[in-house]
Every structure is written in C-alpha cells, then in structure tokens.
Amino acid sequence: MRITAYGEDALLVNFVQAIEPELNDKVNLLANKLRNEDYITSMIPAYCSLTISYDPNKISFNDLKNTIEAIDLAQEKEQLEKRQLTIPVCYDDKFGIDLSALEDQLSITKDEIINCHSSTAYRVYMLGFLPGFPYMGITDEKIEAKRRDNPRKKIEAGSVGLAGRQTGIYPFDSPGGWQIIGRTPIQLFEPQEKIPFLFQAGDLVNFKRISSDEFSEIAAHIKEQTFNWKQIYG
C-alpha cells in the first residue's frame, strides 16, 4: 500500500497496480471501513486504488495516513457484501452493431464471441466514465477488442460493449468508443425510484443470452413498472 497526497484535502491509496479481484477487494474493504468517518467528504474506489477527499480541519494528512496504515484489511474480509446479478442481453445484429466487424478483427465467429462473453462471471471493478457505468472484467483474451478508432456520437442506453479486456454497459444514450456486441433491456440508471444506480463496485455479474422477443417483453415490463427486479439478483 502506498499513500500519497493528492492536493491539500485529498490523498490517494495505491495498492499493487494490477487488475485482480483480491486487490479490488482491498479497495472496497478500505472504503467500507472509512465510509462513516466524519472527516471523509468523498471516496472514489477504482481498480486498485482509493481516492479519498477529507476535511483538513478535522484530520491532517499524516493522521489519516497513519489511520489507514493501521487498518488490518485481512481481518475485515468477511464484512464485504458480494451481490450477484444476472443481466439479460440480446446479442442480435440490430443491437450488437460491432459483432460483424469483430468477427474479422478477432478471427472467430459471432457465436463464439457471444458464448465466450456470456459464459463467465465478471466483477464490477469500478463505476465511472458515466454515472453508473460499470467497468467489468476480465474478459477472455479471445475477445480482447480494441476501442473503435472513431468513437460513435451516440450509443443507445443498455448497449453492452468490449474494450481491451473489459466489458461495460452504457447507462444512458451517450457518445462512446467501445465495441458494441449486444443490448440489455435492464435500466442501469434509476432502475427503481430510490436506487439511482443498478451496480456497485464489487458486484459479480453474469450475462444471459436472450432473444429479441424476450428483450421486448422485459422492456415492456420495465416500462409498465411491472418488472420483478428481484429476478436479476442471485
């Protein structure tokens, strides 16, 4: 663990700089441990780092650094909440607009890309880029994809994309450069009235392949507020 000042009222905790579940666990454990301290103003958990803003009138950089270094993360492990979510995705060409190009780029068939993408559980390493956008990984190297050279001006909400060895979902219409392989009818942004975001860092996510008809059905239920949100958990 390496702690450096980040301006006058923030610091950065860097763990070993690698993308690994155990390191990301440490980030979330540390964030949980500090969350309710009154000197904390905000925290940004990322892959293997935690950015902490604090009130310098309540705690000094050195005191906070010492406090963090004294926390035994190994002992905190059981307290980490792990949610499992299953996200339905339709990989039809009308949604997976980059699948054809990826077949050529990766020299494998669409079905292989889809099977590969939907057969592994991914971890949400962090949220960012857009509010509620989950950075998930690590994808199999068979579907490691370069970002598009020319980002699109508009990617539809729910679009599922690949970039490097990561996969993500656009929470709302937005410009973006990820390679789009499908779309989920599930809302990531304000899915229910009191929960603004579907995902949180540390979640485990499976993708389930659905047909275009199933997509329409789920979308209709969500629109009419008759969707049973519990079915995507566990």
Partner: peptide
C-alpha cells in the same frame, strides 16, 4: 497510461 483511478476537480 495507467490503470484508471479517481480524479478530483482542480486536478
């Protein structure tokens, strides 16, 4: 290029 990490206004 580094592994993505938090950024704050004023950075």
């Amino acid at each position: 290029e580094m592994i993505s990490s938090g950024i704050l206004p004023g950075t």
